[in-house]
C-alpha cells in the first residue's frame, strides 16, 4: 500500500490561510488502512483546524468528506458537485490522489494534507515499513523476495557493504541490513552461490530516472481512445 503521514497542523493551517471554506477530503483506500488519511483522520483534522481558527479568532470553516479513491476519475466525478461550494480542498490522499483531483477538477484548488512517505506494509500495529521503490525492473527473483534496491540503504546489487554489523545497517541500529537478510535466506534455500555472480549495473531507465512513466495497455484500451 501507499503509506502517508499527515502534515503538521501548523503547516496545514499556513497553506489554508487564504481560504474561508475548506473541505478536508479523506481517501478510502491505502491511507485509510495506514490510518493517516481516511474518514476518521479527516474528521480529526477538521476538529483540530476548527479549534485552532476559533483560538485565533478566524472565521474560516472546514468540513470533512471521504471518497473511496481520489486517484480515479469516476469517484472524483461523483463528488465534483459537492466540492463546488468550497474555496479549497485539503486532500488527505497520497500525492497521486492530490494530482488526479487537480487534473480532473481544473477549477479547484487541491492542497496536500499528507506527506506521501513510501510503498510498504504494516510490520506490526502502528509500524509501517518501506519495501518497494517501484524501480520498474524487479530483481526479487535474484534475492528470493528481499529487495536490495529498496531495503539496502545504498541500493547495492552485489552483497553487503562494510557497514553491516550484527545484522544491522550502518545508517541505524533499527534498520536491518538487507544483505544479511538475503544472505540468511539464500543459505536456507541452499542458493548462496547466487551471491557469487557479479550483477551488472542496473538499467535505471525503467525507474523514475527514465523520466515520467506511463503504462499503455492496448488490449484493455477503449476504441474511442479514452
Amino acid at each position: 500500500m501507499i503509506v502517508g503521514e499527515r502534515k503538521p497542523l501548523a503547516e496545514i493551517a499556513a497553506m489554508l490561510e487564504p481560504f474561508k471554506k475548506v473541505c478536508v477530503l479523506g481517501c478510502g483506500t491505502c491511507v485509510t488502512v495506514c490510518l493517516s488519511g481516511g474518514e476518521k483522520e479527516a474528521a480529526e483534522t477538521v476538529a483540530a483546524l476548527t479549534l485552532l481558527w476559533q483560538k485565533e479568532g478566524k472565521s474560516s470553516e472546514a468540513n470533512s468528506l471521504t471518497m473511496l479513491r481520489q486517484c480515479e476519475y469516476e469517484y472524483i466525478d461523483d463528488l465534483a458537485a459537492k466540492l463546488s461550494e468550497y474555496d479549497a480542498v485539503l486532500s488527505l490522499a497520497c500525492g497521486v490522489g492530490v494530482q488526479t483531483m487537480t487534473t480532473r477538477l481544473q477549477d479547484k484548488i487541491v492542497l496536500p494534507g499528507l506527506n506521501t512517505t513510501f510503498m510498504g506494509y504494516p510490520l506490526e500495529q502502528g509500524v509501517w515499513t518501506e519495501n518497494c521503490l517501484g524501480c520498474g525492473n524487479c530483481v526479487l527473483d535474484l534475492t528470493m523476495g528481499i529487495c536490495p534496491i529498496t531495503r539496502c540503504s545504498k541500493s547495492m546489487l552485489n552483497g553487503p557493504c562494510g557497514g553491516s554489523q550484527e545484522g544491522k545497517c550502518e545508517v541505524s541500529k533499527d534498520v536491518d541490513c538487507a544483505w544479511q537478510l538475503i544472505y540468511d535466506r539464500l543459505i536456507k534455500l541452499d542458493l548462496l552461490h547466487r551471491m557469487e555472480t557479479v550483477q551488472p549495473p542496473k538499467d535505471w531507465s525503467t525507474s523514475h530516472h527514465g523520466g515520467v512513466r506511463t503504462t499503455v495497455r492496448e488490449d484493455v484500451k477503449l476504441e474511442s481512445g479514452q
Binding site: 545504498k154 547495492m156 552485489n158 552483497g159 557497514g163 550502518e170 545508517v171 557479479v198 550483477q199 549495473p201
Partner: peptide
Amino acid sequence: LQGDHAMFGNEPGSKNVNDIDSMQLLET
C-alpha cells in the same frame, strides 16, 4: 569504494547517488 552513507556527513539532506555499486565500479 561504496562510500559511507551521506547521512553521516555535513550534507545529510543530499541525494545518495548509488547508480552503480562498488563491485560494478571495479568491473567498469
